[in-house]
Design a protein around this nucleic acid. Sequence first.
DNA 1: CCTTGACCCTATAGTTACTATAGACCCCAC
DNA 2: GTGGGGTCTATAGTAACTATAGGGTCAAGG
Lengths: 133, 133
Amino acid sequence: MSHGTSIGGLAKATGTKVVTIRYYEKIGLLPEPPRTSGNYRTYDASHRERLHFIRRCRDLGFTLEQVRELLNLSKKTDRDCAAVDRLALDHLAEIERKIADLKRLEKELRRLSDCCQGGRIGDCRIIEALSAS
Amino acid sequence: MSHGTSIGGLAKATGTKVVTIRYYEKIGLLPEPPRTSGNYRTYDASHRERLHFIRRCRDLGFTLEQVRELLNLSKKTDRDCAAVDRLALDHLAEIERKIADLKRLEKELRRLSDCCQGGRIGDCRIIEALSAS
DNA sequence: CCTTGACCCTATAGTTACTATAGACCCCAC
DNA sequence: GTGGGGTCTATAGTAACTATAGGGTCAAGG
């Protein structure tokens, strides 16, 4: 007997903004829900689960295209799940690359900032270091 | 007697794409250079240095707005360089935050991926874990 | 002299994942 | 019946470019 939720209710239930839900619908990640007589969207548990899945993937840093693919894969229940694992591993590799990049930046920025002794900008080592090749 | 470089030459010299140089000009990060009779842009050493500075900041992950600010600061040579240092430190803090975030994701994704035992998608632990709250 | 190819010009639209705005409609309580 | 909150559509804006279309310029080779 679960009567439908309004878009605001779904938003609250999933920690998503209303506009974002409409956006997901527009790009085809969420199906168009039925409407009330007053043209309001009404959602049920399956919508809620799907949106929850999307948000969880997004929280883990998957792109919307990856989410789309995961959603497609999750429907093909009798297929080999290697494709799912590959997607996860690819994403993991990318995150590791990003971490490595950021650590390199961190090191260099720290070195940069350590140069600052106070004083006038004309003598600023940071500006100088940024200018250097 | 350094005669000017064409936009392509500047691009090559700084490892920047031609379109990106024009883009920087459009948003006011690079000054409009003089033109040849044939309406080609011509750049000199000062342009090259400024672009180099911009690219170096970008490589270090500063946003274009931060670069704009650094460029402004670097002109005010007799001001206190605390502002420069603050910008660098703010940026450093943000990078550290990002690293922490990504490490958290990495851990969770690794846990996710470790679940995969092969088999059919219907039984896939990854999909399951993504669905779980 | 003319053509060919590499380079350059402008202006516009597309990318990612939303966010913000405007102007209108619906619904419930008082 | 009126107020306020929620909802509707459509459009434009964000960061930092990238891509495309449709043309102009220039130096070299035939």
